[in-house]
Computed example of a mutant assay.
Amino acid sequence: MREWRVKRRERTRQLIELGGLVVKAELIELTDDDRAVILGLLIEAATELKGENRDQQLLLWRRRGSRAFAQNQLADRS
């Protein structure tokens, strides 16, 4: 397969997975599918990551995300 097709499929998969995270976080429902609000939230997060407390913020968000994934896995087993 051509290299550009492989890269395109990888990018498509990444975009689908990232969209799935937006769904898992319930941002679509909580914002009434207002994409400007969702983009604003993401920009706000990016601004936080450019600040002095980057490592602390990453650690906090990683913990929250890991707990959410773990809870989701438990719910899927039930």
Score class of each variant (00 low, 15 high):
Gly40Phe: 01
Arg2Phe: 15
Arg5Leu: 15
Thr31Gly: 09
Leu59Gly: 12
Leu49His: 03
Ser66Asn: 14
Leu18His: 08
Gln56Gly: 14
Ala70Arg: 13
Gly40His: 05
Arg67Thr: 07
Gly65Cys: 13
Gln57Leu: 11
Val22Glu: 02
Asn72Thr: 14
Phe69Leu: 12
Arg77Lys: 11
Arg35Val: 10
Glu3Gln: 10
Trp61Thr: 09
Asp55Thr: 09
Gln56Asn: 11
Arg5Trp: 15
Lys50Leu: 10
Leu49Arg: 05
Gly65Asp: 13
Glu29Tyr: 06
Arg77Cys: 00
Ile16His: 09
Ala45Gly: 11
Gln71Asn: 14
Arg54Phe: 05
Gly19Met: 10
Thr47Leu: 00
Leu15Gly: 00
Ala75Phe: 06
Arg5Cys: 08
Lys24Tyr: 12
Glu26Ala: 12
Leu18Ser: 10
Gly51Asn: 03
Val22Gln: 05
Val22Gly: 03
Asp55Val: 06
Arg64Gly: 06
Gln71Cys: 13
Glu48Leu: 10
Ala45Ile: 10
Ile38Ala: 00
Arg54Lys: 09
Gly40Arg: 00
Val6Phe: 15
Arg8Asn: 10
Glu3Ser: 09
Ile28Ala: 05
Asn72Val: 04
Leu49Trp: 01
Arg2Pro: 05
Val6Asn: 11
Leu27Thr: 03
Arg11Gly: 00
Leu18Tyr: 05
Leu60Thr: 10
Val37Asn: 09
Arg5Ile: 10
Asp76Glu: 14
Asp34Glu: 13
Arg63Phe: 02
Asn53Phe: 05
Val6Trp: 14
Met1Lys: 07
Leu42Glu: 01
Glu48Trp: 08
Leu60Glu: 11
Arg11Cys: 04
Val22Thr: 07
Ile43Phe: 00
Val22Lys: 07
Ala68Tyr: 01
Ala25Gly: 01
Glu29Leu: 05
Gln57Gly: 03
Trp4Cys: 14
Glu10Gln: 14
Glu48Asp: 08
Lys24Thr: 03
Ile43Gly: 06
Arg63Leu: 08
Gln14Gly: 08
Gln57Asn: 11
Val37Glu: 12
Leu49Pro: 03
Met1Val: 07
Arg13Asn: 06
Ile16Ala: 11
Glu44His: 13
Gly65Ile: 07
Val6Ala: 14
Thr12Asp: 10
Glu29Ser: 07
Glu48Tyr: 07
Leu18Arg: 05
Trp4Gly: 15
Arg11Asn: 05
Arg77Asp: 02
Ser78Arg: 14
Gly40Thr: 09
Ala68Trp: 02
Asn53Leu: 00
Ala25Thr: 01
Ala45Tyr: 03
Asp34Asn: 15
Ala45His: 09
Ser66Gly: 06
Ala36Pro: 02
Gly20Glu: 05
Arg77Gly: 04
Leu18Gln: 09
Glu26His: 07
Arg8Glu: 14
Leu74Gln: 15
Phe69Asp: 08
Leu74Val: 15
Ala46Pro: 06
Val22Cys: 01
Ile28Met: 15
Val6Gln: 13
Gly65Asn: 13
Leu39Ser: 08
Glu10Thr: 14
Ile38Glu: 01
Gln57Met: 08
Arg5Glu: 15
Lys50Trp: 06
Leu74Arg: 15
Leu59Lys: 12
Ala25Cys: 04
Gln14Asn: 09
Gln71His: 07
Leu60Ala: 09
Lys7Pro: 02
Gln73Tyr: 04
Gln14Thr: 11
Glu10Tyr: 11
Arg9Asp: 06
Ala45Val: 11
Glu17Ser: 05
Glu44Asn: 12
Phe69Cys: 01
Glu17His: 07
Val6Ser: 15
Arg11Pro: 04
Gln14Trp: 08
Arg8Met: 12
